[in-house]
Design a protein around this nucleic acid. Structure first.
Length: 311
DNA sequence: CGACTTTGACCGGCGC
DNA sequence: GCGCCGGTCAAAGTCG
């Protein structure tokens, strides 16, 4: 076990205020300002949106407080920027985030060190529900048999949300507590993929963490499911410790916990075109708008979100 | 001693 | 049917 993966290696500023640091262990949306702006994209205050209370946060998503419809809407946004966002190929592995943008070579470089996208859960590779239920016929096959309970039933795959982050640290701190339950070598990648599960009881949220084989400095994190509990960091207060004090004085913070404003993805306010994703960080000057390059509407990329909002 | 990581094995889905 | 591959389990090991 490397120290980098230990749960709380954060004695540094997760916001990457230190320009010398490459990435950080903090939640990625905090840390990417330097990389984003390195591309010469210098956001001016005028070009940024005011923070709207209607914005949903990434944490909202993780907490399950937003529905698919909302999320879908959030992604159906406009664009005006030249920044590129790379969808992370679902099902992973194969390609995660690397091969899908031949025409946008900078999609993986440091042009946008944190990129978010929802993953399509549409692929048919489902596993039976292992978490609960279905342990009826005490089949001999012992433990392994447990895995295959509920045969024939396909577990509806949880919605996924993936993003890429430029970071030296594999396991990015997001305020939740995770237990690693597996690690696998990934085909076509020299870097293994790690599997984490939320340690909170009854919370089935999982996440996968892997490095882009094209750009090892990029970490691809995929969340699956939505937390059904408050962020443990709220209780422990360790995430708060990660935050610079100046952060708390931000007008956007309010009294809620940092997780509540880690990342916010803006619904299409008044801007622009269909092919963009927009997410911003807490601080207005962190905001950045991204445009989907080779893709059509986001719904084409994440059909699951579109499907799910239809009853 | 509890929480967590490591790691090899297993399982199911998918493509050929 | 077979092999590949992603995902998961669980025993053993590690850490604080």
């Amino acid at each position: 076990m490397s120290d980098e993966n230990r749960s709380t290696p954060y004695h540094h500023d997760p916001f990457c205020h230190d320009q010398n640091r490459v990435g950080g262990a903090g939640f990625p949306f905090f840390c990417e300002k330097p990389a984003i702006f390195n591309q010469g994209v210098t956001p001016s205050p005028q070009g940024l949106h005011a923070i709207d209370p209607s914005y949903m946060t990434f944490t909202d998503y993780l907490h399950g407080s937003l529905d698919y419809n909302t999320l879908s809407k959030a992604f159906d946004m406009s664009c005006s920027s030249s920044e590129v966002i790379s969808p992370v190929d679902n099902d992973s592995g194969k390609g995660t985030a690397s091969h899908e943008h031949p025409s946008t070579p900078n999609s993986l470089d440091t042009s946008s060190s944190t990129e978010a996208v929802t993953e399509d859960s549409g692929k048919s590779k489902h596993k039976p529900d292992l978490q609960e239920g279905g342990c009826e016929d005490g089949d001999e096959n012992s433990k392994k048999a447990n895995k295959s309970k509920k045969k024939g039933e396909k577990r509806p795959r949880e919605p996924r949300f993936a993003f890429m982050t430029k970071s030296e640290i594999d396991h990015l701190e997001d305020g939740y507590r995770w237990r690693k339950y597996g690690q696998k070598a990934v085909k076509n990648s020299p870097y293994p993929r790690s599997y984490y599960r939320c340690t909170t009881q009854k919370c089935t949220v999982k996440k996968r963490v892997e490095r882009s084989f094209q750009d090892p400095s990029i970490v691809i994190t995929t969340y699956e499911g939505q937390h059904n509990h408050p962020c443990p960091a709220t209780i422990r207060g360790n995430a708060a410790a990660m935050l610079p004090t100046s952060f708390f004085s931000s007008a956007t913070v309010g009294s809620s916990f940092p997780q509540e404003f880690l990342t916010q993805m803006l619904p299409p306010n008044n801007q622009s075109g269909p092919n963009s994703m927009y997410y911003h960080n807490i601080a207005p000057h962190y905001q950045q708008q991204f445009q989907l390059p080779d893709y059509g509407l986001l719904q084409d990329i994440v059909p699951s979100f579109v499907r799910k909002q239809e009853p």
